[in-house]
């Protein structure tokens, strides 16, 4: 089953092709991370899928419907986690969750959502007094209160402290375990690696790579880097496709422990930076429409 299907999507702003012939399928129940530098067309693509922007060309289907002609029934099945806004400052989390729940056909219980996003202690305090992380969790609560089949998460953990991010990931895994399809955009590669079943990298409005986090860009078969410190000749670095063999040889040479031994494979971040390198600095300046409000 396909939750989201994109064929030949094009969106231009003046002379800039923000999205330039994008093809992508996202399966039902999948957690998909969309990665890319600022101005790559991520936010534009997501906003088209959410029904907030018109497209210039291409076919888009989200839960079987064209988001450009979205109706209430379609919105009832979608959850959008938007960037925090100050417009809620005068209300409490419970008040806005309760009111938002009333617009959905089969919402989750407000208390359940408050607990899921860990806002029990702040549920009846003015939102103006919430911390950045608490507000973001409220945004997620508002995105899932309607029991959506598909959730859009746009840079969900920007500004979180490390513990808050871990807690947040737990929340997202819980949603995924219930079968919710999740489309995530993020600048954090570790976040994508932790959460996503598949990642797509876009730059200049095109899809550069599409794979599981472990295999992206041929990452699994890339050479490993082995470094160690020799007392006489200093630090050594060797690239090899057979690191185990090298380490065994070194162990014999040093009679046991190899001094300061490190064996590393390219991280997702290394792979990502290599993929987007040709597209950064040329024609990928952030476009006005993607500057966060």
């Amino acid at each position: 089953m396909t939750a989201i299907s994109i064929r030949g999507l094009v969106k231009t702003y003046g002379a800039t092709r923000a999205v330039d012939g994008l093809d992508l399928d996202i399966e039902t129940g999948e957690v998909f991370a969309l990665l890319g530098p600022n101005g790559a067309g991520k936010s534009t693509t997501v906003e088209i899928l959410e029904g907030f922007r018109d497209r210039d060309a291409g076919e888009v289907s989200v839960l079987g419907a064209d988001p450009a002609r979205a109706d209430r029934l379609w919105r009832n099945r979608i959850g959008i986690v938007l960037q925090s806004s100050s417009g809620l400052d005068l209300l409490t989390p419970r008040e806005i969750l309760t009111s938002t729940a009333k617009t959905y056909a089969a919402p989750r219980a407000v208390d359940d959502v408050v607990a899921a996003v860990g806002l029990e202690e702040k549920a009846d305090s003015r939102i103006a007094g919430l911390s950045g992380g608490q507000r973001r969790r409220l945004d997620v609560g508002l995105g899932i209160i309607g029991r959506p089949e598909l959730v859009f998460l746009d840079e969900p953990t920007t500004g979180f402290d490390p513990q808050a991010r871990r807690d947040f990931w737990g929340l997202i895994r819980g949603l995924a375990a219930e079968g919710t399809t999740i489309l995530l955009t993020t600048h954090y590669l570790d976040e994508a690696e932790q959460l996503a079943d598949r990642v797509g990298v876009i730059a200049a409005g095109r899809l550069l790579a599409l794979d599981t986090p472990a295999n992206l860009g041929g990452r699994a078969s890339e050479e490993a880097t082995v470094t160690w410190l020799d007392e006489a000749s200093g630090r050594h670095t060797e690239k090899t496709s057979t690191p185990t063999e090298l380490v065994t040889r070194l162990a014999e040479q040093y009679h046991g422990e190899v001094p300061e031994l490190v064996v590393s494979r390219p991280t997702l971040e290394d792979t990502y930076l290599r993929l987007i390198a040709p597209h950064v600095g040329q024609g990928s300046e952030p476009i006005a429409e993607e500057v966060p409000a």
Partner: peptide, 21 residues
């Protein structure tokens, strides 16, 4: 104008709330 600027309107639009409401 404030609600349009701070994203409140967009947030409401993201729900199945009928615009008339």
């Amino acid at each position: 104008a404030t609600e349009r600027d701070d994203g409140t309107l967009k947030r409401l639009r993201a729900t199945p709330m009928p615009p008339m409401s």
